[in-house]
Amino acid sequence: MLQQAIVSGLVFGLYFTLVGLGLNLIFGVMRIVNIAHGDFLMLGGYAAYWLFTLFGMSPFLAAVLVLVVFLAVGWPLYYLIVPRLQLARDAEMLSLILFFGLSQVIEALATIAFGTTEHSIPGRVLGIGPFGLLGAMLPKAWGVSALVSAIAVGAVALYLYRTRLGTLTRAVMVNRDEALASGIDTNRVSAIAFGIGIALAGLAGVFAPFMLGSMTPSMGVDVNLAAFAVIVVGSLGNPLGTALGGMIYGVSLLLMQTYLSSWANLLPNLMLILVLLVWPTGILGREVRRA
């Protein structure tokens, strides 16, 4: 049972890495907390649902389409709201409020468009029945989602560490003002990062119908709480850190479910607080404390 919990936790957690990845990138680059992250994820899920229901489109094709469309939406969205937000004295705090407003707008529109009933895509689309891994039996959907997540983490790492734009992005992460002073077009770099962040949320959403049971327009809140825990426990700005955070989250959640199930929600929250207090710089990250 212990082994089952740990192995499934690792695989399950890898999906939650994908859930946190976009949120992390946006926070790392722009110091913006995208409270609407869970709602973009929800939109990705509904997109996959409709593509499947109307055209029988496979989730993999839908994933590609969602990535492209969400990137195309996120990019201009950045110019619409973020530069203006950053004029404010306390942009980091205000971002919480701004994106809360955005999340309300998205949820309201989704409710009008989709109704409040639960939706999901039949599990057989990703294969029915379990598969064995290191002595544990796991649903096929978990394996697929974890694989997609691993690819996404790898791609983001490649982007950040192997491309010119990625190097510039990291420069902005370290110090926005210095990056600006050294002639980097921080807005362009940030806009792309913002678009990628939104696209990753959408991608995670495509697999949500398989990983999160079913979807409703109000699912974003719970998704956000999980995503916060994942990115804080890992470290901000670093996609590999998010992978670590996701797996710690997954393992501890499933261990709790196995042994102390009714307290399962408590653990991620406690972990988030403890990690912040015990590792002042985050597990792999940077300064988050003052005084």
């Binding site: 499934s8 990983m211 499933l254 479910q257 009714s262």
Partner: peptide, 20 residues
């Protein structure tokens, strides 16, 4: 006889625990 949080969205591990 056990409770899980209402926000629980995955029961895979729980089902294995029950089966045991």
């Amino acid at each position: 006889y056990r409770g899980v949080p209402t926000s629980t969205s995955d029961y895979t591990v729980m089902i294995n625990t029950i089966a045991a």
